[in-house]
């Protein structure tokens, strides 16, 4: 991997996220610090209530820390307004959701293009890129299909192509295999392996140990703090 490897892509520094639940305060993340580096493939695990969903939202810039700092490629996100944060999402983050979350009225090609249409200065070759990515995930011949005409696995492939179209700083996958049968899930995880091998940074949130083990490294949360950090290659090896 080239020189960009090992650069911090996402840094959380002393991040706390509080939720008010009536009179109670819930500390979803508690003075949490961690750094993800370029080219890494992480799985983020933890039981429900461990804070992994909160971490996912913060990483994806659709939520903000109550205190602490979050930097993407060195850029501080605390000072950004809603528009700037949206622009940042459209440039740096590739979302893959559990339930695919394709837009029903758009066809495959249009769905892949969605992150680009919201950029302030979209690339000229966007459509070409989208076609290439559709080809890459094996749906080059289904560009005109609507999501309802595709199987779950195919929809998730479209979602992955969509997550890659903006050439993101990292791919953020939320239980990406949760709705798929084991065979299809394996295909999607193979695809992530390939992307990782190509140098993409992938952060995969999951509660399934078998899925978590496919990643290079695993970050385990408990009660809003880091419980465990493990290099899976060592285990496998």
């Amino acid at each position: 991997m080239a020189g960009s490897a090992d650069l911090p892509v996402a840094e959380l520094i002393d991040v706390t996220r509080l939720y008010k639940m009536g009179a109670n305060e819930v500390r979803a993340l508690d003075r949490f610090s961690f750094t993800f580096r370029a080219g890494e493939y992480w799985s983020i695990m933890g039981s429900s209530g461990s804070g992994k969903s909160t971490l996912l939202n913060l990483l994806g810039c659709i939520d903000r820390p109550t205190t602490g700092a979050y930097r993407i490629k060195g850029e501080d996100t605390q000072t950004l307004d809603d528009d700037e944060l949206s622009e940042l999402r459209s440039r740096h983050i590739g979302f893959v959701f559990q339930s695919y979350n394709l837009i029903q009225q758009l066809n495959v090609l249009e769905n892949i293009l969605v992150p680009l249409i919201y950029q302030d200065d979209p690339p000229e070759d966007g459509e070409e890129r989208a076609r290439r990515l559709a080809q890459r995930v094996g749906l080059g011949d289904r560009l005109d299909h609507k999501p309802t005409e595709l199987s779950g696995g195919q929809q998730q492939r479209v979602a992955i192509a969509r997550a890659l179209v903006n050439d993101p700083t990292f791919v953020l996958a939320d239980e990406a295999t949760g709705n798929l049968d084991s065979k299809t899930a394996k295909e999607i995880l193979d695809l992530f392996d390939e992307l990782h091998a190509e140098g993409k940074t992938i952060l995969l949130v999951t509660h399934e140990p078998s899925v978590g083990l496919r990643a290079q490294k695993t970050l385990r949360l408990k009660d809003g703090r880091i419980e465990d950090v493990r290099d899976n290659r060592a285990v496998v090896a």
Partner: peptide
């Protein structure tokens, strides 16, 4: 609502 959430997550600004 969900579509709005998806679009916002993927970078849509409020004005979009």
């Amino acid at each position: 609502t969900r579509e709005i959430g998806i679009r916002r997550a993927l970078g849509a600004k409020r004005r979009h």
